[in-house]
């Protein structure tokens, strides 16, 4: 992320409500249009077919919500960081909200490679709609952490693999009883990774996730954990609470 007159920015955004049903690619296209609507000075790549220099972090699955999504974008000249979150939010689909921006330091590493852990809030309920208690889920979580391995079937590029997700699970606990089921929080590593749906599966084949919300992403540097907006920032600007 270097270049003359370049102004590299990291954005944090939330994706909540109906808009959670769009894909990661659709969200990228929505940002692309929002930059144009606001006539922001995007830096373009060189070459035969110049493209804006935009890179997204970890993908968010269709149907999952988040309050901790990140993307890096490079402007060709300085922009007003204070005003940026509100300008973009107004140009983005309802439910996507830019909640913070940071001017990136030179030589900031790529988002996708930096994030080491992700936190999720999951609301789980019984598939057969029978009652489930917070105590029961707590016991099941304890049992999970006593196992040595948690194999799950994962289909990648049409091939079925058996993957052990135990090493990815770092922390899990019940928060409260939700409107439908039990709300729990789970921290999952990215190398190796586990999907929220896989976590629900190992918690019990009789359970399904009724709501999945990404609450945080973490970057670990020299033993310290930091939010991506802070980790590589030269200057941070948080959006006013809306």
């Amino acid at each position: 992320m270097r270049g003359e007159g370049a102004f590299p920015v990291r954005l944090r955004f939330a994706e909540r409500g109906k808009v959670r049903f769009i894909s990661h690619r659709d969200a990228a296209r929505a940002f692309d249009r929002a930059f144009r609507i606001e006539a922001l000075p995007l830096a373009l790549s060189e070459g035969f077919s110049p493209r804006p220099k935009v890179s997204f972090g970890l993908a968010l699955s269709v149907g999952h919500e988040s309050i901790a999504e990140y993307m890096d974008v490079r402007f060709s000249e300085p922009v007003d960081l204070e005003a940026l979150p509100a300008r973009l939010t107004a140009a983005l689909p309802e439910g996507i909200e830019v909640t913070g921006v940071a001017l990136l330091a030179d030589r900031a590493p790529a988002l996708q490679e930096s994030v080491t852990a992700v936190e999720w809030e999951l609301e789980v309920a019984k598939i057969d709609e029978s009652e489930v208690s917070a105590e029961e889920i707590s016991l099941r979580i304890e049992a999970l952490f006593e196992t040595k391995s948690l194999p799950v079937n994962r289909i990648r590029k049409g091939r079925e693999d058996i993957v052990d997700i135990r090493p990815a699970l770092t922390r899990m606990s019940v928060i409260e009883s939700g409107s439908v089921g039990i709300v729990l929080t789970a921290e999952i590593a990215t190398q190796p990774a586990a999907r929220p749906s896989e976590v629900v599966t190992v918690l019990g084949e009789d359970l399904r996730a009724v709501r999945v919300l990404r609450t945080a992403q973490w970057i670990e540097r020299d033993g310290n954990r930091q939010e991506p907006l802070i980790a590589d920032a030269a200057r941070v600007s948080e959006a006013r609470a809306s």
Partner: peptide, 10 residues
């Protein structure tokens, strides 16, 4: 493609 059914386009 569940987003077919949500509306709320610009």
């Amino acid at each position: 493609k569940p987003a077919r059914y949500i509306g709320m386009e610009r």
